[in-house]
Nucleic acid binder design. Structure first.
Length: 616
RNA sequence: GGCCCCAUAGCUCAGUGGAUAGAGCAACAGCCUUCUAAGCUGUCGGCCGCAGGUUCGAGUCCUGCUGGGGUCGCCA
């Protein structure tokens, strides 16, 4: 059930939000009525409207229980009195009311709905707030991949969420910058490099093998070799734990990391080369999924800044250096533990780099807020990061938010990259594309389109299915992905919504061909059915839905909203003639309504990064 | 073990302190000579993990318990 909680003051020049406007109006009139009826001031918080449940007559419901202390009367009587008073005061918008127990159900007038629809129809970007000059700047960090293996389903949830969140925040009137941090240095990439040196035989990326997959293959190769050596050492009588640390290939990788830090040219060259392969691979994946970034940060370029800042903080007594040279932040006073920031050999850890990156970003963008879209296994890390930055004297540490999304699990449990139990991002895209193509061919509705147009539509549908499937789930919750049966094209899915859009598009094309309707001309209709009113009411909720999605960092709210709107529209489409309607005014209303359902779906689904086709 | 998160229909998920807790999938039964059937309608399916508490009112807030996940690295 939609939100009518927060009533935002109508400040400055802003476009009408329609549903909020009527709610604010009703709220103030209710307060007036309470004063007139019982001579007492009520607080706005006591006046709470909600959407009337479908099984009752009316559109908006005032729950009168909180007002009984003021009225000192029975719920029914209180509701009755308020209903009459409101009807008198809001003759322009209300057409009637009914009372059931403590619920005062108000009916909005048909004329008011038609006025709402006209208002919505006049705005091409209905519900979207353009950021004003002084609107806050928000950085959204998403995807922080390691450069040693290709992206998998976990990254897919990450990039889809982050990208959608960025769109939602922008639509809520913020200046948004999308940033990425690439973990391009460290032992993980050295493992791939070493295995490539030993076993690569100069192989290079090709059409059959993307760069990120190639590098990932050698990461796996390293692991195989490592295991083999451990086994050999254990057979020679070494303790398994010790064998893991003493395996020659691991020692070699560690040596390679030291050489990297020392700037050894050959190591740096190989590192550059292999990272470039990975970036090209990532870029292709990002392009397939339709996500991008305004700026990339590389760990190799920020860790030294982080290190410097940490050492400065030691000098200021904010952080502590132990006898072995390691540097620590004492977070015990805040209920956390001590956290290491520099190893005893002076090398930096993940946290060090994050400190450097955060400062760099603050200098560059002067952000008001930064959101890290990172999995919930790193909650501790981000709590610590905020505390450390605050200790270092950065007031903006309080403006960092960790959007902690849940893991994606497979039917057999957690994904494990080393055991090959992963769903690869590129494979997933290709499989969905194949399924979309096959379904489209079976149905044969795209046959008239050019091959390019067909492919474009197949991609749209494949992505619509994946994105909607992932984004409709509350980001905070663990979600299950069953490759065999998870992604469907029927029911509560992206393609279901896309299909409805295609049907409306078809209606509008035919209406234009047959000159049944001129969209510029708003017909002089005066009446509409309950179903049509329901649709207008849903349309009018878009601005509040976007605002709430932005407030709660939850694109899922918009997915559910789109689904409800689509479902309701399909019922309407099924039960009402549109082109076939003979009354021209009624036909014009239905076409205008359909066009605006399509528009709102385009806008809202667009915030999920999902495009809607004209045909499918 | 400490801390954090989760538990709603067979499965996947909605559900903002308000009315008789909703969708989709799966199963079954209907609806295309008519605007795209990737659609619509109906049937079946629930001690909202358990036990207390707060409240006029609890799936929703609080406490305890049970079960599951995460985290507590000089890993990222």
């Amino acid at each position: 059930m939609p939100i009518f909680g927060a009533q935002r003051p109508a400040t400055g020049r802003h476009k009408p939000t329609i549903m909020n406007d009527i709610l604010n109006h009703l709220t103030s009139k209710t307060l007036e009525a309470i004063q007139a009826l019982w001579g007492q001031e009520a607080e706005a918080a006591q006046v709470q409207f909600q959407k009337t449940r479908k099984e009752f007559e009316g559109h908006l419901t005032l729950v009168v229980f909180p007002l009984l202390k003021i009225s000192r009367a029975k719920p029914e009587q209180t509701a009755e009195l308020l209903g009459k008073a409101l009807l008198e005061r809001c003759a322009d918008s209300l057409s009637g009311f009914n009372v059931i127990k403590g619920f005062l159900n108000l009916s909005l007038s048909e004329a008011y709905f038609i006025q709402m629809l006209r208002t919505i129809a006049q705005q091409d970007d209905f519900g979207i707030r353009q950021p004003s000059q002084d609107a806050p700047t928000v950085l959204v960090e998403y995807a922080s991949p390691n450069t040693n293996k290709p992206l998998h389903l976990g990254h897919v949830r990450n990039i889809l969420l982050g990208n959608s969140l960025a769109r939602v925040l922008a639509a809520a009137g913020k200046h948004v910058k999308k940033v990425q941090v690439v973990n391009d240095r460290g032992i993980h990439i050295c493992k791939s490099m070493l295995a490539y040196q030993k076993f690569g035989q100069g192989i290079e990326p090709s059409a059959e093998l993307k760069g990120d997959h190639l590098v990932g293959r050698f990461y796996v190769r390293f692991d195989q070799e490592h295991r083999l050596q451990i086994q050999q050492l254990v057979e020679q009588g070494m303790d398994p734990k010790q064998a893991k640390d003493k395996a020659p290939i691991l020692l070699e990788a560690q040596e390679m990391l030291r050489q990297w830090e020392a700037g050894e040219p050959a190591v740096r060259a190989l590192w550059e080369r292999m990272n470039q392969w990975v970036y090209q691979g990532f870029d292709a994946t990002y392009a397939d999924y339709g996500v991008d970034f305004d700026k990339n940060y590389y760990e190799s370029q920020t860790y030294e800044l982080g290190k410097r800042l940490v050492l400065e903080a030691v000098g200021q007594g904010i952080l502590q250096q132990k006898d072995d040279g390691s540097v620590w932040a004492d977070l015990t006073a805040d209920g956390l533990d001590e956290k290491v920031l520099l190893r005893s050999d002076g090398t930096s850890v993940y946290m060090t780099q994050d400190i450097g990156t955060a400062l760099l970003r603050h200098d560059e963008f002067q952000f008001d807020h930064m959101v890290y879209v990172v999995g919930n296994e790193q909650e501790y890390h981000f709590k610590a990061l905020k505390l450390i930055l605050a200790k270092m004297g950065h007031a903006w540490a309080g403006e960092l938010t960790h959007l902690s999304y849940g893991m994606v699990e497979l039917p057999e449990g957690k994904m494990k990259s080393r055991e090959g139990k992963v769903v690869d991002a590129d494979d997933l895209f290709q499989e969905m594309l194949q399924t979309a193509r096959q379904t489209a061919l079976e149905l044969g509705k795209l046959d008239e389109l050019s091959p390019e147009e067909q492919l474009r539509t197949h991609r749209m549908i494949a992505l619509g299915a994946v994105k909607y499937f992932i984004l409709k789930v509350n980001p905070k919750k663990t979600m299950l992905f069953n490759p065999a049966e998870s992604i469907d094209f029927n029911g509560n899915t992206g393609p279901f919504i896309q299909y409805t859009h295609a049907r409306v598009s078809s209606l509008l094309r035919k209406a234009a061909e047959r000159q049944l309707w001129n969209p510029e001309q708003l017909a002089a209709f005066e009446t509409l059915s309950a179903k049509e009113a329901e649709l207008v009411q849903l349309l009018a909720e878009l601005p509040a839905q976007i605002q709430q999605a932005a407030d709660e960092f939850s694109p899922a709210l918009l997915a559910n909203y789109c689904y409800e709107l689509t479902k309701t529209y399909n019922q309407f489409y099924n039960d009402f003639p549109i082109l076939r309607e003979e009354n021209p005014e009624s036909r014009a209303l239905r076409l205008l309504l359909s066009a605006n359902v399509a528009k709102v779906l385009r806008l809202a689904m667009g915030l999920l990064g999902i495009e809607l086709p004209e045909r499918m």
